[in-house]
Amino acid sequence: MRTSNSFVLIHGAWHDHHSWDFIVPLLEEVGHYATGIDLPGAGELAQSPASYFENPVDLDAFAVQASPNAFVTQEERNEAVIDLVRECYAEEDQKVILVGHSLGGITVSAVAEMIPNMVSMIIYLSALLLPPQVSAFQMLSRKSMSQRMTPQLYVGDGEKTGAMRINPKSTDPSYLDLVKQTFYGDLSDEEFRFALSTLFPDEPIQVATVPSPITQKRFGRIPRHYIHCRNDKAYPLSGQRDMVHLVDKVMGNKTVVHMLESSHSPFFSQPKALAKILDEIAQS
């Protein structure tokens, strides 16, 4: 049976396909096809330093050990998603809707630029929407992003470990509270424990150094939407709006914006509200 639309869902930093566990069935209930993926270096494909597997984690070693995840490239991530898009395009006989959360915005932008004829629209969920030739690190250093809390979670020196490293196995209540406030401020303690269990520690740092490849001719012709998360502490609302403004100016057209009264992770805290917006965007 032909579905209404095909969604390809791309997770953010330190997350994996479990980000969409509550969203996929809600989209399927209203007739859409939806699928997630573990990007190379994420989820089941993630590699972590040996100290992370000790019980308890050897914090001194964990802060300095090189990351086996450091060699994952953005090109690998792009290709993995392109393969999935092509598969969905062939099976469903229609273009796909790309959805990117957080750091996943880098990947959906690149994929849309590379295969624009297979993408019907792009949806950014409090995600990095980078102007041409701007990297994630460059965007995150802007004044509009100065209040983001994520850097307070970093463990060790990223230039030496090769990773943006966090510690989901921490037993420090203050650190865990910081994780909760950064990503999951509107989750209950039980919901937070589940979300925490899905995280991996090492996000390859080199993916944040890659300039955005988008062009007006290819990426710019695809309708795009941005779902703002008003209470986001990872990417403040000011930063989200700054990205939309910058890209709209360069592309010469408008991103359609939407608002959720949520933290950085509405797929856990407000799945029904998020699925409703995704469905409404698809029907538009």
Rank of each mutant, 00 (worst) to 15 (best):
Y89H: 15
A63Q: 11
V81K: 06
R2E: 13
P211S: 13
V64R: 13
D157Q: 12
F192Q: 07
S265N: 08
G12M: 10
M1V: 13
A34L: 11
A163K: 12
G220I: 10
K249C: 06
K180T: 12
V247D: 04
D60N: 15
V96N: 02
V244C: 14
E159A: 15
F219G: 01
K143Y: 07
L246N: 04
P236V: 02
V134I: 15
I115D: 10
G12D: 10
S6W: 01
K272L: 09
T35C: 15
S109I: 11
A127E: 03
T171P: 01
L9S: 05
R230P: 01
F53G: 01
P271I: 01
D83C: 10
F137Y: 08
A66E: 14
P131Y: 06
H17V: 09
S48W: 04
F192W: 01
Q74C: 05
E28P: 05
G185N: 14
L237E: 01
K95Q: 15
F219R: 03
I222P: 02
T3K: 10
L130V: 03
S265R: 03
P40T: 08
R148L: 04
L59F: 09
S212V: 06
I214D: 12
P25Y: 09
M145R: 06
I122K: 07
L178D: 06
I37W: 11
M114V: 13
E76C: 03
D242P: 00
K95F: 02
L125F: 12
M121Y: 00
E79P: 00
I106G: 05
G156F: 01
E91K: 15
G156W: 00
R221S: 15
K95I: 02
A273E: 15
G41H: 00
I106R: 15
T182H: 02
G158V: 04
V111R: 01
W14Y: 00
A66C: 04
I214S: 14
K169F: 08
S120V: 12
D232C: 03
F267A: 04
D172N: 10
L274K: 01
S126Y: 06
A127P: 00
I23Q: 03
V57A: 08
N5D: 15
T3V: 12
S4C: 01
E44I: 12
E79W: 03
M114K: 15
A273N: 12
L27G: 10
F62D: 03
L59C: 05
S51Y: 07
V134H: 03
N55K: 13
E54W: 02
S188V: 10
H258C: 02
E87C: 03
P223K: 12
F71E: 13
R230H: 07
S102E: 00
T171Q: 15
V108R: 08
G100S: 07
M251L: 15
K254E: 11
P168Q: 10
N117P: 02
A112D: 02
Q47A: 15
D177A: 15
Y89P: 06
L98I: 09
